[in-house]
């Protein structure tokens, strides 16, 4: 397997507090959708924060394209090509949609190229084009999530990490988010997803990772996880995958 990102037995936590992750590992293949599942408090979001440099890694390694990311700041990791959308979508509520997209390309130095890419995004997402001059904070939850996901594409990242993109959205809108995610994947962007709705997350993914109590219990093809009776019982609410 030609991994793009390799997380090896990392330990991490908040400040000087106890370790939330202790022995978490992860292998990310290029161009695929990876879904991390696990109960509340398993460390799913913490794992993403550790990868993107928001938390200090106490032990273990995060290797991206052969380069060790431990100790790098979030802005440095972003420049390497890893983009993170946290649960709360991380928008700037008093900036317009266009300004939010411009912030998405903050690390780009060529301003003409940035404007060209913004126009490209607005072309692909008509709802954002219609609301280009509207403040992000005044849009619906689904529109905000669309903006947060579309914004990641400005810098053409290698990996996009999405932390519960479906949180607080209506079922119809949730499917739209997964469709955007699939579109990203089809374009060659590797997606790493944390999803509370584990069943839906796995159904829309190629690869699954089961995390519990801060450590990785299982990694494998999403279909295999969906059909594993033990995992169904423990982490998928006992539901059989349809």
């Amino acid at each position: 397997m030609s991994e793009l990102l390799q997380v090896t037995n990392i330990t991490a936590g908040y400040g000087d507090g106890p370790a939330i992750l202790d022995g978490a590992h992860l292998t990310v293949e290029p161009g695929k959708v990876h879904c991390i599942i696990g109960p509340n408090g398993a460390g799913k979001s913490t794992l993403m924060k550790a990868i993107c440099g928001m938390l200090t890694i106490r032990k273990g390694d995060v290797i991206f394209k052969g380069k060790r990311l431990n100790g790098m700041r979030p802005d440095q990791i972003l420049r390497e090509g890893i983009c993170f959308v946290p649960q709360e979508r991380a928008l700037f509520p008093k900036m317009t949609v266009r300004e939010n997209l411009r912030m998405g390309g903050f690390i780009l130095n060529d301003q003409k190229e940035l404007e060209r890419r913004i126009d490209g995004i607005l072309e692909r997402f008509p709802i954002l084009r219609e609301r280009a001059d509207q403040h992000a904070g005044t849009m619906s939850g689904g529109q905000q999530q669309t903006l947060a996901m579309a914004r990641t594409l400005i810098i053409k990242p290698a990996i996009v990490m999405l932390d519960e993109p479906s949180l607080g959205l209506a079922p119809k809108v949730i499917q739209e988010m997964f469709d955007i995610m699939k579109m990203m994947s089809a374009e060659g962007v590797t997606v790493l997803l944390v999803e509370q709705n584990a069943l839906m997350g796995l159904k829309n993914s190629d690869w699954g990772v089961v995390l519990d109590l801060g450590r990785t219990l299982f990694e494998g093809p999403a279909e295999m996880i969906l059909s594993d009776p033990r995992i169904q019982e423990l982490y998928l609410g006992g539901k059989k995958a349809a």
Binding site: M54, D75, P86, A90, F92, M95, M103, F106
Partner: peptide, 23 residues
Amino acid sequence: SRLGYAIRATTQNREAAELLGVN
């Protein structure tokens, strides 16, 4: 200005600004 954008972004959402590459 680019720095002005970064200042406004940091004002509105410090964590988001950091995640988008603002030091």
